[in-house]
Design a protein around this nucleic acid. Structure first.
Lengths: 320, 320
DNA sequence: CTGTTAGCGCTTTCAG
DNA sequence: CTGAAAGCGCTAACAG
């Protein structure tokens, strides 16, 4: 039909005819059928967002902001966003989603390091961008914050304050971000010739509870740290809680830094010194990269590491 | 083809043939095309989750848990979940989504009271369930927590502690939940013949900042409340912050209650007395209701108000 | 039990 | 500039 031309905004239609079609569409209340279109074009016009640790990741407000930023752009491009979480889906699920043509591409959020599904996805040639992580799989893009440098900044600031025994609470080390942050910690202290023995490192899992436990652990040490960097704000807040209960003054007796700058970071006492990531930018770049790959599968992968921003507030001070 | 029968698990296929087909499928690496199937069956096999205030709602951890619960069930039923936020989409968008057969139904989260789109959705006959809100639109289901009763419980507890001047911080009053909570507050105090003048009510917007501002406001009053109920935990935590800055001891000088029982609620000092909603249950009921309506459009709407649970911790005490 | 036919609603191609 | 024909991949209905 000529209808198709009108709907798709082709130019070669007589204005008068176009009017007539438009009026008819209005009258009948016509909407194009997405499935038919998808079938014909072999494109779903939707992309999947993969959350590996759905619950935990979504609980992190910065993931939400990221998804929000992406949703905005995708809606603008008339793409739908389908949300998939691996907790509830077999490993093969992501590739299938693509092969069934339900999505044209995937945004994979913070994949676990041992995840094999990224390889499957790459093998199947699914247009994919990794966010909050990295990959060197052929053709695959990624956008990641500079977690390493962020921790370096944090530590430099803390060292300038005069600290020499600095503890560290990791996130879930199955996630690349967490290991990057830990690596930065080790490297920086080594370079500064400061002690960074394993006793100063507490393996957390991003939860407030872990931060809480971490403080109790640090208090058992003969040589306690005068300062602790937590791999996210939730853990820092948990640590704050434990410190309060144990009568450890912050920052008086212990300096404390977080990561992410969640809303709550400035509503706890003391306000958290932390690190902020440019989430809107990350989201935008990820979507652009993915859409580029979808439209041109041979395009070079987009790979970018975006700088972070130190947010100095109250939770760090001079060592006692 | 017989292939179709095999894939759809029809019984009338000779086992041997089935085997042969399965093997072929494996070899060729065949996946059924979702678009073709959708076109033929006139069903997308996916449902849309509508977040009106995407950012704010998703920032609330309980929304995340709700979505998580729903995603789990939907994946089980082999439905896809498409996420749509109204901030980025024209009002008509939801109905279109359905008419284009991109989704078979909608879960609408916490619709604003003045939202007209619910009527549009009802007019178009879109199978819909409202979560965190209510509706009497024909055929439309809803699952809501008993916000009213939750506040009643909270107030009863606080009154038993001996409080007589009780303040209240509302959420965004464009959301039904917020007005329900406020109404419960007014009714309960009236019934108890306690003062509930408008000066005791602060209009917040769910953010920690609002709670912070609310405390500063209450301190300007000649007759200050000895206790305050906040419509969510974020605001309570903001108020905690302000109280700390102003030297107001909690619960010593001021008792404070929140709502939602977010993770952080037990990691602030003092730990928040608050209210918990059965989120998994709400999510499950919503999905079941929606799927029922999708499969049988004439089914009676499912409408349920689920009870909440008072969580007593440390932030409330006897009045000074 | 298995194969054939037709059509879901759209767009691309080719004729008018 | 507009219409007719064909086909995307699937399944329902009907033969065999």
């Amino acid at each position: 039909m000529t209808v198709s031309r009108v709907i798709n905004g082709q130019t070669n239609v007589r204005p008068e005819t176009r009017e007539r079609v438009l009026r008819a569409i209005e009258e009948v209340g016509y909407s194009p059928n997405a499935a038919a279109r998808a079938l014909n074009r072999n494109k779903a016009h939707s992309i999947g967002i993969v959350l590996t640790q759905f619950q935990q990741t979504l609980s992190a407000p910065y993931f939400v902001q990221l998804i929000f930023a992406m949703e905005k752009l995708l809606t603008w491009y008339k793409y739908d966003l389908v949300l998939v979480s691996s907790s509830h889906r077999p490993e093969r699920g992501y590739v299938d989603l693509y092969r069934e043509r339900k999505v044209d591409g995937l945004v994979v959020m913070a994949p676990p390091v041992e995840a094999t599904y990224l390889d499957d996805v790459a093998d199947a040639g699914v247009p994919t961008v990794v966010v909050h992580g990295r990959t060197d799989l052929p053709g695959m893009s990624f956008v990641d914050a500079d977690n390493y440098d962020a921790v370096v900044q944090l530590l430099q600031y803390i060292m300038e304050l005069g600290h020499e025994r600095i503890g560290f609470v990791t996130g879930d080390l199955n996630v690349l971000n967490a290991t990057d942050r830990l690596r930065a910690y080790r490297d920086t202290l080594a370079e500064a010739r400061l002690p960074a023995d394993e006793t100063l490192i507490f393996r957390g899992d991003w939860t407030a509870r872990a931060g809480y436990d971490a403080l109790e652990y640090f208090l058992t040490l003969k040589e306690r740290p005068t300062s602790v960097v937590c791999s996210n704000d939730h853990m820092a807040i948990g640590m704050l809680k434990a410190a309060h209960e144990q009568g450890v003054r912050i920052p008086g007796q212990l300096s404390l830094a977080g990561f992410d700058d969640i809303d709550m970071a400035s509503f706890v006492t003391p306000m958290l010194t932390t690190v902020r990531q440019p989430l809107d930018q990350i989201g935008r770049e990820a979507v652009d990269a993915l859409l580029t790959t979808i439209h041109n599968p041979d395009a070079l992968p987009y790979r970018n590491i975006v700088p972070t921003h130190l947010v100095v507030r109250e939770s760090c001070g001079q060592p006692a």
